[in-house]
Design a protein around this nucleic acid. Sequence first.
DNA 1: TCTATCTAGTTCAACTTTCAAGAAAAGGTC
DNA 2: GACCTTTTCTTGAAAGTTGAACTAGATAGA
Lengths: 167, 167
Amino acid sequence: MTTASTGGPRWLTDEEQRVWRAYLHATTLLEDHLDRQLQRDAGMPHIYYGLLVQLAQAPRRQLRMTELAKNAKITRSRLSHAVARLEKSGWVRREDCPSDKRGQNAVLTQEGYEMLRRSAPGHVSAVRQAMFDRLTPEQVRTLGEIMQVMAAGLQPEGTDADLPWLR
Amino acid sequence: MTTASTGGPRWLTDEEQRVWRAYLHATTLLEDHLDRQLQRDAGMPHIYYGLLVQLAQAPRRQLRMTELAKNAKITRSRLSHAVARLEKSGWVRREDCPSDKRGQNAVLTQEGYEMLRRSAPGHVSAVRQAMFDRLTPEQVRTLGEIMQVMAAGLQPEGTDADLPWLR
DNA sequence: TCTATCTAGTTCAACTTTCAAGAAAAGGTC
DNA sequence: GACCTTTTCTTGAAAGTTGAACTAGATAGA
């Protein structure tokens, strides 16, 4: 299945193929599952829920748009649209940033906070059922390691940790 | 951090939270990365590429729509749109199913096959760099196990394996 | 056969994401 | 200040996704 070092591409071994398919299968099933669960129970897709969680954990339940986009790993454009929608739903409000007139703070409203509190148990339970209740402690530990390694390798350039002249 | 058994929701432990965030972080980074790579090199998102791969591996490079949707874990609706787009690009063609007049076969065209052959090495290499080249063999093995367990737990009902009267 | 039900696939409208373009403010240099 | 570059955020159009409604053909029972 693998090409000997003839300069051609290194294909995946049989085991790697199995793992890759299992990965795609499991991650898409889980993402779909959580999207449906949250759409049903909180009226929004998973990513939007994640934005509210970020805000809820931020100092005054607010974050600069760029900061929020960075945390959630989405583009500023996408965030603009998303916050517009969340604003229309009443869960987020925009405020001008006092120190930078270009800036906007996305602020979690009280309603948004309440909504989060109501739907958090169901969401945690869905995550638990899908992942943590099915894995051994050892598997959970290893999964953490693996995901850290992968994330590190995919980190977009420009992170401090990746600038050689800062090492 | 965890609620003692008071009947309240079982929150995630600190470690579980770390693992969950790492999981979300890594999986979104990887999906974004592959989407960009394939959009650039093959002119389509990752999921569309997956459809072509399925077709390429099918008996006569063709599959019934429903079958293809099931394999790719997407709705029939989404597949209809996707195939319409792939048809416009010339990589797939629809054919009426001879045995069932409701049915349609999605057929990989020769152009589609060529395109796949051209872009496969780059795609495999991207997957490799992001995942397999960074993990130890032991980690790859464990990742496979974990993903299988998770997928099994999320399997939509109605799969043969889940029908108790067939066991 | 007649009818009810089910299945395959498409279509529509509402929503989300992407990409490119643009407005406004900040920062740096002369 | 004048000029240029960068940063912040928004906008608009095109592409993609979703869920419900719909058409046509298959299937099963009386």
